[in-house]
Design a protein around this nucleic acid. Structure first.
Length: 389
DNA sequence: CTAGATGATTACGA
DNA sequence: TCGTAATCATCTAG
């Protein structure tokens, strides 16, 4: 009940402030007694002092209760009460002036929106996945990184759980109402010794609610921060890259060079490749390779191949040879009459959108590059066993 | 340490 | 939504 103590303190500051002002006003009996009876005046002063100080003391103290009881039964109590009423009447303006209706806080709305968007404060089911999807969408195309997603999701669920358990503590129906009734009981109790209007109680309730919602605000804020940190870590992790394993690169290259005329694997082909690469990878070290990584790879490969075909010529020959080995049986018949242009030989050019990149166009700058890199050799021919002739 | 390789991201277009 | 092109950020061989 640390919070409650804090709130009490805060409330105490507000509720007693007014009276300390009154105390400084120099109390006089309402209907001028000319101060003839010094003893009585002293008596009233003492009682007033007790009333003033008693609110500063712990109301749970048995001693205080006794004193309060004594004050309540004091013969001067009705008179004093009317004095307090009059004073309060005079200072009423300041209280009225201080009651500001707080409009919906834009900051709170922002936090609420974010928590909702992240799936922290949303409906119980699907919240995490919605957030993961949102995160994926925000970070570009790669949306099927299942391992990192599940990691992200579990962390988010943790945050979500903490948020909800914390929120329950301060839920309007829970501690807040309990505390409100407690304070209202105290005020009712106090209303026997000092005038308290319903409006004042209302105001107090408002203060309590504001205090509680500010606690909720803090909770929401720190939850948002936690989500942001999680998210930035998640995105950072995606940005860190590890080179694919040699086997994985080999598989991708094999596909690329054996489909050089149209190096655009379909969705199914990409899935197939991703699976194949992941299998080979799992035998070694590292992570799995996803479909979007395959897409990235092909995107990079196409553009880099196109930019400098010559540089890749050797690689192309290598993989073409490999493919020739594996496909030798299937194309055995065709190979026989195509010593110079085997079907298993990679197509020397491929279509990119509307352009076509050919290796064997004489004027091509790329051909020059090719020749530079390959020492001016013509495109090699392949034997049925895949060896370069 | 550096240059080049390479996976990821971004902006933009169809 | 997919592809291209440019670019970023990191990895790696020398």
């Amino acid at each position: 009940m640390d919070e409650q103590a804090r709130i009490m303190q805060a409330l105490g500051g507000v509720s007693l402030a007014g009276h300390s002002v009154q105390g400084g006003m120099g109390l006089q009996p309402p209907h001028g007694h000319d101060g003839t009876d010094d003893g009585r005046k002293q008596d009233i002063g003492d009682i007033l002092h007790q009333i003033m100080t008693i609110t500063d003391q712990s109301l749970d103290e048995a001693q205080a209760k006794n004193r309060k009881h004594g004050l309540n039964c004091h013969r001067m109590k009705p008179a004093l009460f009317s004095v307090l009423c009059e004073i309060k009447e005079k200072t009423g303006l300041s209280i009225r002036g201080s009651q500001e209706e707080d409009p919906p806080d834009p900051q709170l709305m922002r936090l609420d929106n974010m928590l909702l968007a992240e799936g922290v404060s949303g409906p119980e089911k699907g919240g995490g996945s919605a957030a993961a999807a949102a995160a994926a969408a925000a970070s570009g195309g790669a949306s099927d990184n299942s391992i990192e997603h599940s990691d992200y999701r579990s962390k988010l669920t943790q945050i979500r759980q903490i948020y909800h358990t914390e929120l329950e503590k301060y839920e309007q129906v829970g501690a807040c109402n309990e505390f409100t009734t407690h304070v209202m009981n105290l005020l009712r109790e106090q209303s026997r010794t000092r005038p308290i209007s319903p409006k004042e109680i209302e105001r107090m309730v408002g203060i309590i609610h504001r205090k509680f919602s500010s606690i909720q605000m803090q909770l929401k804020q720190s939850t948002c921060e936690a989500v942001m940190i999680l998210r930035s870590r998640f995105l950072d992790a995606r940005r860190k890259r590890r080179n694919f394993s040699k086997q994985a690169t080999e598989i991708l290259n094999e596909y690329f060079y054996s489909h050089l005329s149209n190096p655009y694997p379909s969705e199914e082909a990409k899935e197939e490749l991703a699976k194949k690469c992941s299998i080979t990878v799992s035998q070694g070290v590292g992570s799995t390779i996803t479909v979007s990584q395959v897409s990235n790879w092909f995107g990079n490969k196409r553009i880099r191949y196109k930019k400098n075909i010559g540089k890749f010529q050797e690689e192309a020959n290598l993989y073409a040879a490999k493919t020739a080995v594996t496909a030798a049986h299937a194309v055995a018949a065709a190979v026989q009459n195509s010593q110079t242009n085997s079907p298993t030989t990679p197509n020397s050019g491929f279509q990119m959108k509307d352009e076509e990149f050919q290796l064997d166009s004489a004027e091509s700058k790329n051909t020059l590059l090719t020749n530079m890199f390959t020492g001016g050799y013509p495109a090699p021919c392949y034997q049925s066993d895949g060896r370069i002739q």
